[in-house]
Amino acid sequence: MNSAVLVANEIRKSYGHGSSRFDALKGVSLRILEGESIAIVGKSGSGKSTLMHLLALLDDPDGGQILVEGSDAKTLSAREINRLRNQDFGFVFQQFFLTPNATVLDNVVLPLKIAGVGPKERNARGMAALEQLELADKAKSKAINLSGGQKQRVVIARALVNNPKVIFADEPTGNLDTATGAVVEDILFALNKEKGITLIIVTHDIELAARCDRRFFIRDGVEETTTNVEGVTS
């Protein structure tokens, strides 16, 4: 049986104070197993992106506990958290967050540069990631000159360049047309099945969510239901 890579226990998160306070999460628990694909599903404002940000250690919960491979995130040093985010976690967002006038290769190798990897090795690993995504011919092109689908593949290459254990994908096809979105989906699920990368997708797209091993439905900051690939509710 696969072990848990991430566990959330009764986590809570609020924004604002007094009459303007908004409770984004109201005690959510979730266990994510190594190598599975899971969709966190909900409408805008449901708390799904907040949950992903907390699981990815991009923010701290106000209450509850997050475990990373059994270790309480609160006990991790800033250096350990930065290493996790830079090496073990990969991120794919619908906004791309590419540097427009930098080359595709420079965008892809940014995590390696942050990690202190030398130019020769990081360029070799960056090119390997681009070849995997069939973008090697675009390595010297500026990111601003790419199509939406190409930009998203660059983002995936950047997420892969450090051989992550987990990929967080927040509405990864939200800015893409249907055909291009399907290609991006196929790439992400191939990485999950072939490389064993744990895939956590935040989406409101039920069809995308249906491709995952498990679906975690959230509404108004609380869990609604969790269903597996056969549609069994737990």
Results as ranks from 00 to 15, higher is better:
I11Y: 12
D72P: 03
R21D: 11
E230G: 01
A73M: 09
S37T: 13
F189G: 08
V166C: 03
V41I: 11
K193V: 02
E34Q: 15
L188Q: 02
L160Q: 10
H53I: 01
H53Q: 10
R79W: 07
V232K: 14
V108Q: 03
N145P: 01
N107R: 02
V202K: 07
K151Q: 14
K165D: 11
M1L: 11
G27R: 07
A8L: 06
G149H: 08
I167P: 02
E80N: 08
E80V: 04
S49I: 07
P119D: 12
D62K: 09
R83G: 00
A124I: 03
I114Y: 08
T233Y: 05
L54D: 03
G118D: 15
G118W: 07
R79N: 12
V232D: 15
V166K: 03
F22K: 11
D137C: 14
G35P: 11
A24Q: 10
K43N: 12
Q132E: 15
E223R: 14
K13T: 11
V229C: 07
I218E: 13
P164C: 12
S49K: 09
I11N: 05
S46D: 04
V155Y: 05
L135R: 10
P172F: 03
I197M: 08
I38C: 01
A129V: 10
T75G: 01
L67W: 04
T233G: 01
